[in-house]
């Protein structure tokens, strides 16, 4: 890789606006895991942490003895219709796999970014993590909101705050190739 790796620490601020899709980032500081159930509860009851500059990690980790054992990303597209309110409340970053829809791309514009973390890399992820706390533990291990401290987790900017989306670019390329068959 010729380009420099950007170092970021949560809570995030205006610095995310400088990020471009395709930039490699190492993220440190607290992030909050949330899947479908946690999003629904936060929508109804409010966010149980300060959302200003916060980063949400689409992940259902395996936790044992107050340690993060495995914490790979889950498919972010499931949260396509559930993320707008978080961005409105000041969330500056989402982490997941597979990218998100056009709605989220618009919601991120001028304010926040989507980071991709490599799918299936649960052992690598947990080696960069310490457990800080938990909210909504009654939702079960996978759906609870875990407060996780990151130490330089390697990410790539998948969707930036200017509407550039490398997932969408790859998708459009594959569409063109597929069309040649029919």
């Amino acid at each position: 890789m010729s380009k420099k790796i950007v170092q970021l620490k949560t809570p995030l601020g205006e610095e995310v606006l400088k990020l471009k899709a395709g930039d490699h980032v190492e993220l440190s500081g607290i992030v909050y895991t949330a899947r479908d159930e946690a999003h629904l509860r936060m929508m109804e009851n409010g966010v149980p942490f300060d959302p200003k500059g916060a980063v949400i990690f689409h992940c259902g980790p395996v936790i044992r003895d107050k340690k993060v054992i495995a914490a790979g990303p889950t498919t972010s597209a499931r949260m396509n219709e559930l993320s707008g309110f978080l961005i409105e409340k000041g969330v500056r970053g989402l982490i997941g796999k597979g990218g998100m829809g056009a709605t989220v791309r618009k919601q991120l514009k001028g304010t926040a970014v989507y980071f991709a973390f490599t799918g299936g890399c649960a052992a690598l992820a947990s080696s960069h993590m310490t457990l800080n706390g938990v909210h909504y533990e009654d939702l079960g291990m996978a759906e609870a909101v875990w407060e996780i401290g990151l130490d330089r987790l390697p990410l790539v900017v998948g969707i930036d705050s200017h509407g550039n989306d490398i997932f969408d670019a790859a998708r459009r390329k594959s569409e063109t190739v597929m069309r040649k068959y029919s």
Binding site: K97, G98, G99, A116, T118, G119, V156, G158, I166, F167, A169, A170, R171, K173, S174, V177, M178
Partner: peptide, 14 residues
């Protein structure tokens, strides 16, 4: 040739 690439981020190896 699809170019989906690792994790759908684009690349030579889908």
């Amino acid at each position: 040739k699809l170019g989906i690439g690792p994790m759908g981020l684009g690349g030579d190896f889908t």
